[in-house]
């Protein structure tokens, strides 16, 4: 039985294999892989050569090799920190179990591990913070953009405010946000850290604008004929938005969202540095203050991590856009 299945599957497998081989034929591979590979090699060479000529008070500027060493260091730190954490919980478990065995009514204490966050924790914190700011911004930007796109009166009222606040740097917002958050967010048992809120709100204030503007333009630019068709059918405002406005302006909304996320990620690092939110921004700042001979290498690791994550975030948005766009033939780039 099993053999017959294998026998039937065999030609299919062969075909698949051939297809794969065809796709990775050497000539194609050369064309696709060679240019970027060459670019990277040249870049690494130039970086190494330039790094050797730059001496700072913290020692020589790190080249690719030193940065790679720091990647390994950080990975080692990560493993050690996780071991320590595991050991901590093991000890706590054992201690409490012993106490409970001696006296079932004993009051045992469960504490969270409070070790120094490692690089991966900081990346995670940054991602959560940027996601919070991004979601917060777009909960305002998309509905407001739709309203502005539908009504030129409201657009005219809101536009000057958009134009004035759009170019404001996050660093100008941050002190204000910090003071407002400390004054208004005074819960006994806070759900969020203040530094997290400060960073997220600052990110939100900066990545509001691209989505708002693109949504407005997208909604205002819907084909007149489609709008007229909707008017003839006398669709209710909610149905009009759901069935016509949203699908029609989806590409523009997503363009806005992508720009928004890119802005948010860029702003986040600066915000975290100043707000002391334990993410990548704080990592860079702490390394800078620390001033060891490894610091520059470690900062460079953060720079590369920031770059790769930013790229990955953009690709994620692009994939989401392909998922939500009604026009599956549309070329996304």
């Amino acid at each position: 039985m099993a053999e017959s299945v294998v026998a039937e599957a065999q030609p299919v497998m062969d075909q698949r294999f051939e297809q794969i081989m065809e796709r990775i034929n050497p000539q194609r591979l050369l064309k696709v892989v060679l240019p970027p590979l060459l670019g990277i090699i040249v870049f690494l060479g130039v970086w190494q050569a330039a790094a050797e000529r730059i001496d700072t008070s913290l020692g020589q500027f790190p080249g690719p090799v030193q940065v790679w060493e720091q990647v390994e260091n950080l990975a080692g730190e990560h493993v050690r920190a996780r071991e320590k954490e595991a050991a901590f919980y093991e000890r706590q478990e054992a201690r409490n179990a012993k106490k409970l065995a001696a006296n079932p009514d004993a009051e045992v204490k469960w504490r969270d591990y409070t070790g120094k966050p490692v690089f991966l924790d900081q990346i995670w914190t940054s991602l959560v913070t940027v996601a919070a700011g991004f979601v917060l911004a777009n909960l305002v930007a998309i509905p407001l953009g739709i309203v502005c796109g539908l009504s030129s009166g409201i657009y005219k009222a809101v536009n000057p405010i958009i134009q004035v606040f759009k170019p404001v740097s996050p660093l100008a917002w941050l002190p204000l946000v910090t003071m407002v958050v400390s004054a208004t967010y005074t819960s006994e048992d806070p759900m969020f850290d203040k530094s997290f809120l400060n960073s997220a709100i600052t990110v939100a204030l900066c990545c509001l604008w691209p989505t708002l503007i693109n949504t407005t333009v997208g909604v205002a630019g819907i084909d007149r004929d489609l709008v007229n068709a909707s008017r003839v059918m006398s669709l209710s405002p909610t149905l009009h938005v759901r069935k016509i406005v949203l699908p029609a302006s989806m590409p523009m909304i997503f363009t806005g969202l992508r720009l928004s996320l890119a802005t948010g990620w860029m702003v986040l690092i600066a915000a975290e540095m100043l707000a002391q939110n334990p993410g990548l921004g704080k990592f860079v700042w702490d390394e800078f203050q620390n001033g060891s001979s490894d610091s520059l290498g470690r900062i460079m690791v953060a720079v590369l991590a920031i770059g790769f994550i930013g790229f990955a975030l953009d690709r994620t948005m692009l994939a989401l856009q392909g998922r939500f766009n009604w026009d599956k033939q549309a070329v996304l780039r």
């Binding site: 084909d223 004929d225 489609l226 007229n228 068709a229 008017r231 003839v232 059918m233 006398s234 069935k243 016509i244 699908p247 029609a248 009604w326 026009d327």
Partner: peptide, 19 residues
């Protein structure tokens, strides 16, 4: 105001391309 009692056939069909 526009209404379905005076339905229009548009030159460029005006079908919703996503439906």
């Amino acid at each position: 105001r526009p209404g379905p009692d005076r339905a229009v056939v548009f030159q460029n069909h005006s079908l919703m391309p996503w439906l």
